[in-house]
Design a protein around this nucleic acid. Structure first.
Lengths: 308, 308
DNA sequence: ACAATTTATATACATTTGTTTATTCATAAA
DNA sequence: TTTATGAATAAACAAATGTATATAAATTGT
């Protein structure tokens, strides 16, 4: 007995009847037959043991309870209408919070990608969480994020993913470098070269150091530089060698301003994935982001950002 | 497509699911089977082309639209619960406005009755409209009043009524009137007196004219006055004689400002009815008022008020 | 008094909605 | 790997809702 016994249809019908003060007009408005309206009002009254309308003479009036019911029905329909609007618009609008978990090394390129994304969809508010892989996996299972960016998609979790970008790192040297034409150079062979590197913590630097460490080689930077571009220039100037994204030295390599050394373990290829839980419902902004990653040439985007 | 496609049951089910974040628990709470819950949520989603919940791993989460829907469902259920409370209590509580149309001459005794009624039901707010019979009948048809007080219930309208009080009409004359002490005056004896009367359509006038007509006497008003009170004053001033409610001249008769003539066919006893339109739904205060009139000795009540 | 209008009722039927039972599927946890 | 749990699905069915049609009852307005 807790709740009022009413159906949504009865709410709609009663509201129309109360508004028109006529069964016939309400029926017309709702595309129902007059008896259908008549019956539903009667049932509503019987089910709740309340008189809602009274027909006096030919006119229809609401009782006090009917007036009260009318108010409530109006409010409910208002609520539903509003909700409908919100839901329908949420279906189209690309806006609101977009929660992305980013594995630590991705933080180096994600800002550039996000900047370009926000340029196109300014109403999205991205919330980027940079944490390690283990925590990302835990929290993905708890539905904490819309998307995640990682270099390897775990197979044990049911996830959907898309590789949006392959980072190819090559060892770049000036054209006149002694090893320029050597084949199968070992890491040890170049361990004592003058290495130009990005600052500590750089994703590339970490990857490179790891790769050399796998071969028992410890790299000491000869000089630290703040951007890929400046390193590239320094290498061309003959200051030393470095590991750079292949993409970023495409032109220079083509015209012989730089050469790519054939070092074992290189090129160091690294895929980057955008991933999400299999059953996760991606809302429009998340979908838009995935689409963005799919359609945009990330290499070019990063190169452009880099040259500034 | 205007409105959200949803049933009341779906609102209840979704609210419970969103609250428990579990189909099974929601089903238990609502005494439904788990598939019933499952299906309704699914239909709700399909019908509105929205994802509301997502099951990730074994846990259930609401999507953004689901959260919004949850809010709306909560509000709607709150509205319905409140409405239910109001309706159910309105069924019991005797309070609120009570609109009564009172035919002009009844205004002499109605205040005393109302006072006693309010003494018992202090939360009722009576709205008394004193107007002439014709307007009352018009407005009753328009459902303007809960109840009406009148001396004669029209047969052409389908009304329910109950006689609660008998009014006594007497022929009143100034104390120095030649017939003041006469016995068994016949209607004809006073047919040529100067008769002071209410306007046409007055309940008393109709009764009086009918009574004289029964005796073959046609009464010509010497003067028409707009109220019983003014007639009373006019009679005391010696302008003529009239027929007045015994009740209204009680005090004046007691102290000799007026005399009551002993005319055959008088005192003319007149019933007072409380009446309402047949199909009118009487709410609790109106019902209470009718019950009050039925159960209380109005004569005694009026006499008591009079002695103050 | 009569015509027109509006609600109330009834019957028979189609459609939609809501339910249960049984079973399958997927996952988390032991 | 097995077990337990919760959700999804299928099938069968009951109940509610809506329909058309016809008709009655009541009242308004001419």
């Amino acid at each position: 007995m807790q709740n009022l016994h009413i159906t949504a249809q009865q709410i709609r019908i009663f509201e129309a009847v109360a508004r028109h003060l006529s069964y016939t007009k309400a029926a017309e408005e709702l595309n129902l037959s007059q008896p259908a309206v008549s019956i539903q009002i009667k049932r509503l009254e019987e089910n709740n043991d309340v008189k809602l309308v009274e027909v006096i003479g030919k006119k229809l009036y609401l009782t006090r309870s009917g007036e009260r019911m009318y108010q409530t029905c109006q409010r409910i329909l208002e609520e539903l209408k509003e909700l409908n609007g919100v839901i329908k618009s949420e279906h189209q609008k690309i806006e609101g919070e977009l929660k992305i978990a980013v594995v630590t090394p991705a933080k180096y390129f994600m800002p550039y990608i996000l900047k370009a994304f926000l340029n196109r969809y300014p109403d999205v508010r991205p919330a980027i969480t940079v944490i390690n892989r283990r925590r990302i996996l835990d929290e993905l299972k708890n539905n904490q994020y819309d998307l995640s960016i990682m270099g390897r998609v775990p197979e044990e979790l049911k996830m959907e993913s898309f590789p949006f970008f392959q980072n190819v790192l090559v060892v770049a040297a000036p054209p006149n470098h002694p090893l320029a034409k050597a084949k199968s150079i070992t890491p040890k062979d170049i361990a004592n070269e003058r290495f130009l590197m990005r600052e500590k913590g750089s994703g590339i630097r970490i990857s490179v150091e790891e790769r050399f460490a796998e071969n028992g080689v410890n790299i000491e930077p000869y000089m630290e530089l703040g951007s890929t571009e400046s390193i590239k220039q320094a290498v061309m100037a003959g200051l030393g060698i470095s590991v750079l994204p292949k993409q970023s030295i495409r032109i220079e390599a083509k015209y012989g301003h730089l050469v790519i050394l054939d070092v074992e373990g290189f090129p160091l290829k690294r895929d980057w994935y955008v991933a999400w839980m299999k059953d996760k419902n991606l809302d429009p902004s998340a979908q838009a982001f995935v689409e963005f990653l799919k359609s945009v040439d990330i290499d070019r985007l990063l190169a452009m950002s880099d040259t500034r």
